[in-house]
Amino acid sequence: MSRTVTVERELPFPLARVWRALTTPSLMAEWLMTTDFAPEEGRRFTFTNDWLTVNCELVEIDPMTSLAYRWDALELRSVVRWTLTPTAAGTRLRMEQTGFGAHQGREFGGARAGWTRFLDQLEMLLERMD
């Protein structure tokens, strides 16, 4: 069974600027993660930070309107979809992530290697809890 995370916000900024921040690698690096994104459907790219690599593929891009990419990280297989709607005050930005986590089935790579990676993360989490 898939699950969905939705985050939506009214932004007091023009839609074109929001779109630029969502699709320009140098700007994406400032608010999301380092990336080799390019606005071409089918394009494979990654988001990376110190401890995580997210494998992505651009599945859909409709300029100034919507953008969707696969977002695979650790045991998570998901799709992140951005939708932009112009409003009187600026832009409504909606992020919807739909996917499957590890506990929802072995088909999503419950392999030993995956769990080992997960355990590394768990260890970091436990350290933070100290």
């Binding site: 985050v7 916000r9 900024f13 630029r20 921040a21 700007l27 400032e30 999301l32 930005l93």
Partner: peptide
């Protein structure tokens, strides 16, 4: 990330 995006948009 949305917070960081808003910060960036303000700076832009």
């Amino acid at each position: 990330r949305f917070d960081a995006l808003e910060d960036l948009l303000r700076r832009m």
